[in-house]
């Protein structure tokens, strides 16, 4: 909501500038857990190149504001993942990449966490097993929309869930 007057002066709010800066410089923590990490690396590497979106992978959670949970979270690593999430400074967002991180995926077993949203709140779920780099980029763009929507005071509109209704056989 920036206004430019005739003298070339831009008028805007501090919130607007902060939000613009935040959504165009999302710095994820470089943590790979499983297969999805390979696709995350592909997203960052030569062909898809997330640098052009201002996304630079950082080695330390203290310097990052996005956590991309790429892969299966097992019970043993869950407390440490939570620790890393807690170490990140606010504001922070979480992208849950792939079926395993979102809901346990194909591993409904004794040792797998059935969805990373049981320990940390998730902003964007990216489906796939593993999601392609394009899908991850979609997730990041979706997160940018969410950050923008929050600045404007409205909640990011989710797709309304259609409740299942009883179906009747078609009579011919």
């Amino acid at each position: 909501m920036a206004i430019m007057n005739n003298n070339g002066i831009i008028l805007t709010t501090a919130e607007e500038v902060l939000s613009w800066g935040r959504r165009n410089s999302l710095w994820p923590v470089s943590i790979g857990l499983a297969c999805c990490a390979i696709e995350m690396m592909h997203t960052a590497a030569s062909r898809f190149d997330t640098d052009r979106l201002g996304i630079i992978f950082r080695g330390s959670p203290r310097q990052s504001d996005v956590l991309i949970v790429a892969g299966t979270v097992v019970n043993k690593v869950a407390p440490m993942l939570k620790l890393i999430y807690d170490q990140m400074p606010d504001p922070k967002w979480v992208i849950s990449m792939g079926g395993c991180a979102s809901a346990g995926g194909p591993f409904p077993t004794y040792s797998t966490l059935q969805g990373v949203d049981r320990i940390i709140p998730v902003d964007v779920y990216v489906p796939g097993c593993p999601p392609t780099p394009q899908a991850l980029l979609w997730g990041i763009l979706e997160l940018q929309k969410k950050i923008k929507a929050k600045r404007e005071g409205k909640e990011f509109k989710e797709i309304p869930i259609k409740k299942a209704e009883p179906s009747f056989p078609i009579n011919k």
Binding site: M80, A103, L113, I119, I161
Partner: peptide, 29 residues
Amino acid sequence: LPSLNEKPGSMPSHDYEEYHTAIPTMEDL
């Protein structure tokens, strides 16, 4: 160990139970 994203009353996005297998604490590790 319920999901932090599921809102009460709404339809869960996937087939899930609120009870989960035990997760270790930092002391365990």
